[in-house]
């Protein structure tokens, strides 16, 4: 089932030009893609490629200049009021920097249950129990629900952000560089968590990232963006195994790799041990 359709989306920003004249900068240029229910679509690209702007439009954090966003069969491009509130319930975002996206003066319980109170949902078992259940789901100690964000490590703080996104049972979670700021060992754990949660609940991800190796672990399909356009869109196997576009090939070739000979030797040793 198609959950989200982004059709011919364009986003222009006006930038101050010479002599007080304004010029426009096209950040996203005629972008279209679908997201199926339960799948992970990755959007990759370098800085300035328009991937984050695309994500923000899909999340209705930005309005597109042209084009439409259809969610669950409803055109939400210009949705207001109740309609927008329902959309906000179904679509949640996890940001890159967990500390700047968590209110430092709120307890974890209050942060995690905020989406519930915004949506006017009163959990039957109470806010405390709801928060603790969510904390358990993302691998945090539920006894810490009265602590503040500063008392957690970066990886734990990102888990708080994920727990908050899950509070209202979303159908789509948009991860904007959600693991980019984390150390590699923590990154692996958070990726695993994201995949487990999807397997349990069957929601979709739009996974925005610049790191192709990370994307490859988590996505089903991938869109490669360059200068505001999608240059290639296909399954993970196709894009990584048989890239069609020159830019995709350049990008894949530039990813640093651990010397494959050394890596193979190490794995050989691991197996024989």
């Amino acid at each position: 089932m198609t959950l989200l359709q982004v059709q011919g989306v364009v986003k222009e920003f006006s930038t101050p030009g010479a002599l007080g004249r304004k010029s426009t900068f096209t950040a996203v240029d005629d972008v279209s893609f679908d997201v199926e229910l339960g799948e992970t679509l990755a959007v990759v690209g370098e800085s300035g490629s328009g991937k984050s702007t695309t994500a923000r439009i899909a999340a209705r954090l930005l309005e597109p200049t042209r084009g439409t966003v259809i969610f669950d069969g409803v055109d939400v491009t210009r949705a207001r009021g109740k309609e927008l509130a329902r959309f906000r319930n179904d679509v949640q975002v996890v940001f890159q920097d967990p500390f700047s996206s968590l209110n430092p003066r709120y307890t974890v319980e209050r942060i995690i249950t905020a989406p519930l109170s915004y949506q006017g949902i009163k959990p039957a078992e109470g806010y405390r129990a709801a928060a603790q259940e969510l904390m358990e789901r993302v691998g945090l100690n539920p006894d810490h629900c009265q602590r503040y964000p500063a008392q957690f490590s970066g990886g734990q703080a990102q888990r708080i952000g994920i727990a908050r996104a899950l509070a209202v049972n979303p159908k789509l979670v948009i991860c904007d560089e959600a693991v980019s700021a984390l150390d590699v060992s923590i990154q692996a754990q958070v990726l695993e968590l994201l995949m487990r949660l999807q397997a349990e609940s069957g929601f979709s991800y739009i996974f925005i990232a610049h790191d192709l190796a990370v994307v490859r672990q988590i996505c089903h399909r991938v869109a490669v963006m360059n200068q505001g356009r999608i240059v290639e869109l296909g399954t993970r196997e196709q894009v990584f195994g048989d890239p069609q576009d020159d830019y995709t090939r350049t990008l894949l070739a530039a990813v640093p790799r651990i010397n494959p000979e050394w890596d193979a030797k190490r794995r050989q040793r691991k197996v024989t041990l």
């Binding site: 990154q187 490859r216 894949l252």
Partner: peptide
């Protein structure tokens, strides 16, 4: 040497780090 550390790491932490690196190929 780089070859030693990457092909025959002696410490669990190095092994864990190497295992955690996402691969592109």
């Amino acid at each position: 040497t780089a070859e030693q550390v990457f092909s025959d790491p002696q410490h669990d932490y190095t092994r864990m780090l190497l295992d955690a690196v996402p691969r592109i190929d």
